[in-house]
């Protein structure tokens, strides 16, 4: 079958026979996300609330 031959070509290694030793680029690994402790969550919540309160007060100051 001549048309099949045109589709599939044999692959011959040009540089070396073994491809095992060629160093390739590495991807960074998938990252499991650490769960947060209750204390940390509370700290973050308190900080966000505090920032929000400060922002509100500053807004109120500007309006005055």
């Amino acid at each position: 079958m001549p048309e099949v031959k045109t589709i599939f070509k044999e692959v011959l290694p040009k540089q070396q026979l073994s491809m095992e030793d060629v160093s390739t680029m590495v991807l960074c690994k998938p990252k499991l996300l650490p769960l947060k402790s209750v204390t940390l969550e509370k700290l973050e919540k308190m900080q966000i609330e505090a920032q929000e309160a400060v922002r509100q007060q500053e807004l109120a100051m500007k309006e005055q």
Partner: peptide, 22 residues
């Protein structure tokens, strides 16, 4: 580190963060 990502201090990342391990 080839398998497990590292934190900045060179420790493998952990499954849980506390304020001190942040």
């Amino acid at each position: 580190p080839a398998i497990r990502p590292m934190t900045q201090s060179g420790r493998p990342i952990t499954g849980f963060v506390r304020p001190s391990t942040q």
